[in-house]
Simulated scan of single mutants.
Amino acid sequence: MQAATMRLNQNILLLGKKVVLVPYTSEHVPRYHEWMKSEELQRLTASEPLTLEQEYAMQRSWREDVDKCTFIVLDADKWRAQPASPEESCMAGDVNLFLTDRGDPTLGEIEVMIAEPSCRGRGFGTEAVLMMMSYGVTKLGLTKFEAKIGQDNEPSLRMFRKLHFEQVAVSSVFQEVTLRLTVSQPHRQWLLEQTSHVQEQPYRDGTSEPR
Score class of each variant (00 low, 15 high):
F145K: 03
L50V: 10
V22P: 00
R31W: 00
R122Y: 06
G136Y: 07
W79H: 13
M131Y: 04
I110K: 03
R102Q: 13
Q2T: 08
V20M: 08
L14S: 03
L142M: 15
Q59E: 14
A128H: 08
V173E: 11
G123P: 01
L50K: 14
E209V: 14
T70L: 13
Q42G: 08
E87T: 02
L15D: 08
S47C: 00
L44K: 09
T100G: 07
E40M: 07
A84K: 15
D67L: 14
G123K: 04
A46G: 05
V173R: 04
M91G: 05
M1E: 07
R122S: 03
A169E: 08
Q59I: 13
L142R: 08
K37A: 11
V137W: 05
I72Y: 08
V95F: 03
K18P: 00
Q185T: 15
G150N: 11
G150P: 00
N9P: 00
E64N: 10
D75M: 05
F145A: 05
Y135M: 04
Y32W: 10
L74T: 02
S89L: 15
V173T: 06
Q199W: 08
V168A: 03
C90M: 15
C119R: 12
E166V: 15
V73L: 03
R7D: 04
F124M: 15
P83F: 12
Q194S: 10
D104V: 12
P117M: 07
T178Y: 02
P155Q: 07
G108Q: 04
N96L: 10
Q175G: 00
Q42S: 05
M6P: 02
F160M: 06
R180A: 10
T45Q: 14
T178W: 02
A92V: 04
G141Q: 08
P186K: 14
I114E: 01
L14Q: 03
K144A: 09
R188E: 15
R180V: 10
V137N: 01
E53R: 13
V173F: 13
E209I: 09
L142K: 09
L21T: 03
R102H: 10
V177P: 01
M1R: 11
P105L: 14
Q189W: 11
M131F: 06
A81L: 12
G150T: 10
